[in-house]
């Protein structure tokens, strides 16, 4: 009886750990994926405007690139959260 109970307990523990790991993976995926979408949406408008400005004046390239990549911070945060969750 006792042996069986221990066996059941270990399998339970193993499955709980596995599902925890799975939840973490889902969380990490959501963190990176959703922040990626957020960054994309934010960069959409800026990028379009920057390309327009560069078409008018080529010297704007450096500044335009700078503006365009500002929202990238969001996805970096997502990435850091994801990595912290997984490791």
């Amino acid at each position: 009886m006792a042996v069986e109970a221990i066996a059941v307990a270990t399998t339970d523990l193993a499955s709980i750990q596995a599902s925890q790991m799975g939840m973490k993976a889902i969380g990490a995926g959501l963190a990176v994926g959703l922040t990626g979408v957020g960054t994309g949406v934010a960069e959409m408008g800026i990028g379009a405007a920057a390309v327009g400005a560069i078409a008018e004046n080529k010297d704007f390239f450096g500044l335009g690139l700078l503006f365009t990549v500002i929202p990238e911070t969001i996805v970096i945060f997502g990435l850091v959260v994801g990595l912290l969750l997984l490791f």
Binding site: E72, T73, I76, F77, L79, V80, L83
Partner: peptide, 12 residues
């Protein structure tokens, strides 16, 4: 913080 963490892209 965001600028320092931004260097995480080197790894990512």
């Amino acid at each position: 913080i965001s600028h320092v963490l931004s260097y995480a892209r080197l790894v990512a």
